[in-house]
């Protein structure tokens, strides 16, 4: 399986362990990822406020780079996923907008046609690889470990743009945990917001959101939270001590990336997967 891989800014800075752990998995999972070195920041669902045209051209170009390689575009960040898919939906439904974007791409030999899909790594695991094939590859099942799956927002909502999981009761990440031999806890926060996107403009409120999620996972007696999004990871891990301030909880809870729980079940070490880099270990 070959894909173009979109480089997310946060995975080159605060959550470098995501790309590192994916790197160590590629061989096991028989996935080839071609890094989109020329791809630019998706704008983190902020660029379009300053200029919707820039948002459309930059992300049309990002997808066109994958089209040039005849590959679908994969990302491991949910906000990159949403941003790229928003651009794709706009371009796929408007010949005028496609023409507008392509007028900026022509001298680079690029053209947006709509031929490449934009996917999350989680979807590649559940759809392209498949859960049964994933289960076959497990060497160190996560038996007895209780996970609280935290989906975050931009991989499930808006469903008309993402269209895999039911946002009221998402299940894809649960199924991955089960395929790896892990157990699940029931808790009320799996489809709630981590608060990441307002951490710098409304910190108190954002920390209340992440705190609610972390506290409910601890109360459900989970051993780990697992998330497919590095932004959720940052809100839940790096900000955890702050988010739990003043709450009556007995302990903290480590937060793992999707790629890391797969890595653990496939026999990779914590060092290899960068788990010791987390703030809560």
């Amino acid at each position: 399986m070959k894909f173009a891989y979109f480089l997310s800014c946060i995975n080159e800075s605060m959550t470098r362990e995501v790309d590192r752990s994916i790197e160590s998995l590629k061989k096991d999972l028989d996935i080839v990822l071609f890094k989109l070195e020329k791809g630019a920041c998706c704008g983190g669902s902020n660029l379009d406020y300053v200029s919707p045209e820039h948002f459309l051209v930059i992300n049309g170009r990002n997808i066109a780079l994958a089209e040039q390689m005849n590959l679908d575009l994969v990302t491991s960040c949910s906000t990159c996923l949403l941003t790229l898919r928003r651009a794709k939906q706009i371009l796929d439904s408007s010949p005028d907008k496609r023409q507008f974007v392509n007028s900026f791409l022509a001298n680079e030999g690029l053209s947006y046609t709509g031929s490449s899909d934009v996917k999350h790594l989680l979807w590649v695991i559940t759809e392209d690889l498949g859960l049964s094939r994933l289960a076959e590859k497990v060497t160190t099942p996560l038996t007895g470990i209780r996970f609280a799956p935290f989906y975050g927002c931009h991989i499930i909502r808006p469903s008309q743009l993402l269209g895999r999981d039911n946002p009221a009761s998402p299940s894809s990440l649960d199924l991955v945990v089960e395929a790896l031999g892990g157990s699940l806890v029931e808790y009320p926060s799996k489809n709630k917001c981590c608060g990441f996107h307002t951490l710098l403009v409304a910190e108190k409120e954002s920390l209340a959101m992440s705190g609610n999620a972390i506290e409910s996972a601890i109360r459900a007696e989970a051993d780990y939270i697992v998330t497919p999004c590095p932004l959720c990871h940052t809100a839940l891990d790096a900000y955890q001590p702050k988010a739990l301030e003043g709450r009556r909880v007995s302990r903290s809870i480590p937060v793992l990336h999707l790629s890391q729980i797969i890595g653990l079940a496939l026999g990779h070490s914590r060092e290899e997967l960068g788990i010791d880099r987390h703030m809560i270990t």
Binding site: S13, M14, A40, G44, N46, L47, Y49, H54, L200, V201
Partner: peptide, 21 residues
């Protein structure tokens, strides 16, 4: 703060193509 935050994404994409977190 919200507007300044958005402006940073706009500026960084032009300067380096990456967000300077």
């Amino acid at each position: 703060e919200g507007a300044r935050h958005a402006q940073a994404f706009f500026d960084d994409t032009r300067n380096t193509g990456r967000l300077r977190e």
